[in-house]
Simulated assay, not measured.
Amino acid sequence: MRCVLVSKNLDLRGYFGAEFARSAPRIELVDHTADATAEDVRLALAWHPPDDAFERYPNLQAVCSIAAGVDNIMACPSLPPDVDVVRVIDPGQAQMMSGFIVWHVIGHQRGFAAFRGQQRDRIWRRGDQRRARDVPVGILGSGGIGQRVAADLAQLGFPVMSWSRTAKPDSSASHSFHGPAGLAAMVGEGEVLVNLLPLTPETRGILNGNLFSRMRRGGYLIQVGRGEHLVEADLLKALDCGQLSGAALDVFATEPLPQAHPFWDHPQIVITPHDASDVSIGAVATTLAVTAEAIRTGQRPPHAIDRARGY
């Protein structure tokens, strides 16, 4: 089966070619810029596709993302309404993301930022130690990655809560909340807020001043969802007035983060360059192979999203 590679800023053939030859040998990769027979293409692998990316492919049946998020594909104007959009499922990514979040949660709990400052100034001063049980963590998003994060934090002794759009049962790791009322309730009980939500019209701008005002004073934000979730001016206000004591930001509305952006110099913000976790090339190849097999047999790909919900 022919699969077209479509990306604005990434050489997908060079990035995936060798692994795909091993893991998905029945799939022929065709570059979008090549003079390919468009009618033969039934599958696409994409990342931030250009606006006209899918106009050339009348028999396209599915588009796979090279990451867990699919919002950049969903926003493409030329995406046909009947084409399945498929996200990658990678347990290794969940493990990496969980480690990243645990690092920041413990850093806030133990006040590690203060120790860095003390080392710089050659100050020997012990800090007050808080137990994990005294630092409740709320997680926005209870999919596969959110469940792994909740389980790992609970294992370390943190009280964990999870929020989702619709009701989900409590797990052994976390207490579940849902809907607008549940969001307000969970945020009000938490000290650390972790954002793992997909980007949809309903979640755009969800990290705003109203939400921050409901958190415990001195709370901490860990933002690893999408940059557009965060109202940046509201975060700065919450930090400057002491409502939040700090924030760890891995994703931004504009990437790379502009040199003149105030986040760079803010002493209470930790910046990482969208590096919390990556999907493995092997997981992408496996997802593509499974999707191709589903198309061959007339089935819906197993990891196709609900386009009405956006995830």
Rank of each mutant, 00 (worst) to 15 (best):
L10T: 04
D90M: 05
S213G: 08
L236P: 03
A185W: 07
P80L: 11
H229N: 14
H303R: 12
L199C: 08
R148S: 09
D306C: 11
H178K: 02
A150M: 05
S277V: 11
V160L: 15
W163A: 09
A294M: 07
I206P: 00
A150C: 05
T287D: 15
L140W: 11
F16C: 05
R26K: 13
G190I: 14
S7C: 15
L239M: 09
D51W: 15
V102T: 09
C64K: 08
R131V: 00
I89D: 06
E55S: 11
V251I: 12
P267Q: 12
D11P: 00
R217W: 05
A292K: 13
R87A: 03
P201W: 10
A53V: 07
P262Y: 15
I206R: 04
D275E: 09
D71C: 05
K237I: 06
D71F: 03
H178R: 04
M1G: 14
A181W: 03
R125P: 11
A53T: 10
D240E: 14
F212G: 03
Y311F: 12
R110Y: 11
S277L: 13
W163T: 09
A289F: 07
D134A: 13
D90P: 00
T297F: 13
V192I: 00
S164L: 06
S65F: 01
K8G: 01
I281V: 11
V284L: 10
G143A: 04
Q129W: 11
L199I: 08
A53M: 10
S23N: 04
